[in-house]
């Protein structure tokens, strides 16, 4: 039973994640008054990438990609999708944050091992940027864990039951905004796409990946986006009792993110940290103080 459930979750993550990327390309195209590629373009791209030949740069290069993809899939198993959740325990939010770090680490290891200077610059930027957005994100989340006395994602979703006004989006509004901004960083969207930056450093960490490696990383990117938004939906938008309703919420949040990110330019890498440690961190501190001092009601 568990195996079937995990298969369902992984397939949901991959298919819906790629679908989200397709939606992103279409939405960006429409914002730029273009027709845009078909919505299933991302599936074709990934299939094509797996059909191409690919070049490896050593054992660590291969292992890092597997580590990144595996770490993300492991993260996915902890995330409740509607009522579907494979692994559940108290404290699974903390596990998810750590597993996401494993994914980034695998990618960093692999990219640096390729020996390309652009990859090293990209990895350095990605890790610098992580300092920026992780701090306000974790601060809000810790405050909420303290206020609700639970650190499981499902528990956090369950305390919001009973109407829209019980959603954390309205109970913890400042925190919701801070986490929403940090999500741009986690999923690598503008203005936080400094690590990728195709025009400056030739797509950064991805510069030496070809064929199936690039395909695996595309899958990983799709899964990261899906996991990231799923956590937001569970924690702030009350989760969902229905599988399809959950996916609809994810789609809505993602579309909002894409529409915002398609009209703003990119930060420089030091601007990312300056910005994240100025405004989101400031509001995160305020929100945490409110949560700790007064609780959620």
């Amino acid at each position: 039973m568990k195996i079937l459930e995990s298969a369902a979750v992984i397939i949901t993550g991959i298919v819906f994640g790629l679908f989200l990327l397709g939606v992103q390309r279409k939405l960006v195209a429409r914002v730029q008054r273009r027709y845009g590629p078909p919505i299933w373009q991302q599936f074709i791209d990934v299939a094509k990438l797996f059909s191409k030949s690919s070049i490896s740069h050593g054992f660590v290069f291969d292992m890092g990609v597997m580590m990144a993809l595996g770490g993300t899939i492991a993260t996915l198993l902890f995330v409740p999708i509607g009522k579907l959740q494979v692994l559940s325990m108290s404290g699974d939010f903390i596990v998810v944050v750590y597993l996401m770090a494993v994914a980034s680490l695998g990618m960093a290891m692999s990219a640096v091992n390729s020996g390309n200077p652009n990859a090293s610059i990209g990895v350095m930027r990605a890790l610098t940027q992580m300092f920026g957005y992780e701090l306000p994100y974790l601060m809000v989340m810790m405050g909420m864990m303290f206020a609700y006395r639970t650190s499981s994602i499902l528990g956090m979703a369950q305390v919001q039951q009973g109407g829209i006004l019980n959603w954390n989006l309205f109970r913890v509004p400042i925190g919701a905004i801070v986490v929403f901004i940090s999500m741009f960083g986690i999923s690598g969207k503008k203005p936080f796409d400094t690590p990728i930056a195709p025009a400056e450093i030739a797509s950064g960490p991805m510069v030496e990946y070809s064929g199936k490696f690039l395909g695996s990383l595309t899958l990983m990117h799709a899964l990261v986006i899906f996991v990231d938004i799923s956590i937001f939906v569970n924690v702030f938008l009350g989760g969902a009792s229905n599988y399809w309703f959950f996916l609809l919420k994810v789609l809505a949040v993602f579309s909002l993110m894409v529409l915002i990110s398609s009209v703003i330019p990119r930060f420089r890498v030091e601007q990312v940290v300056t910005f994240s440690w100025k405004w989101p961190l400031f509001f995160a501190v305020i929100q945490s103080v409110i949560l700790v001092a007064m609780g959620v009601r």
């Binding site: 390309r25 195209a29 273009r34 027709y35 845009g36 078909p38 074709i44 195709p198 797509s203 510069v207």
Partner: peptide, 22 residues
């Protein structure tokens, strides 16, 4: 590539490095 002719509707896009390109 941009809005008038829009290559991307055929799935054609620019890539930054030779490893990724077809």
């Amino acid at each position: 590539m941009t809005s008038r002719f829009d290559m991307e509707r055929f799935g054609i896009g620019p890539m930054a490095t030779p490893r990724q390109a077809d």
